[in-house]
């Protein structure tokens, strides 16, 4: 599974509260409301300028704190193809893969806003210009899961992990 797109760049400790702040949320909200306000605290233009295939790149502890699966779903629904960060909040990492949003832990220091990057989950490689950044590749079962849209859709479709 390969992804290619432009980079939206964030720093360290972007918690799910920052990237999906409850502040803007109407009491009765839909996924559309949440999408509109994604990253509003740190990049007010994000939701209007992100295009299908774009990537979110961050530093340490992306998605820290909360266990809200929304935080991953919103990015997937906005068309974000992949998240790259140096480290993650435990629950965000798991929720993302379970919700069909590929996330990769790798060194992101060399990646800048607006860069065109290519990610190959199977090979465990990020390409930025001539640079190659390695990461632990996705095993086949997880690639199938992510392509199916997450854990439950994958189980409905495939029934089980491949032997």
């Amino acid at each position: 599974m390969k992804m290619k797109g432009r980079v939206f760049r964030f720093g360290d400790n972007v918690s799910t509260d920052v990237h999906l702040s409850v502040k803007y949320r109407p009491p009765e909200h839909t996924l559309e409301d949440l999408k509109r306000d994604a990253f509003r605290e740190i990049d007010p233009d994000f939701a209007s300028s992100v295009r299908a295939g774009d990537l979110v790149v961050a530093g340490e502890n992306f998605g820290l704190v909360s266990s809200r699966a929304d935080a991953a779903v919103v990015l997937r629904e906005l068309g974000v193809s992949c998240v790259l960060a140096k480290s993650y909040g435990h629950m965000f990492y798991r929720n993302a893969i379970n919700m069909g949003l590929p996330v990769v832990e790798c060194d992101t220091d060399a990646i800048r806003a607006g860069d065109e990057v290519e990610v190959d989950l199977e090979a465990g490689a990020v390409r930025v210009g001539d640079e190659r950044i390695d990461f632990s590749p996705y095993p086949a079962a997880l690639l199938t899961m992510v392509s199916a849209g997450g854990l439950i859709p994958f189980l409905k479709e495939e029934g089980d992990y491949p032997a």
Binding site: R94, L151, I152, L155
Partner: peptide, 9 residues
Amino acid sequence: AVESGETAS
């Protein structure tokens, strides 16, 4: 610790 969807899986 896992989420409910993971337990179901």
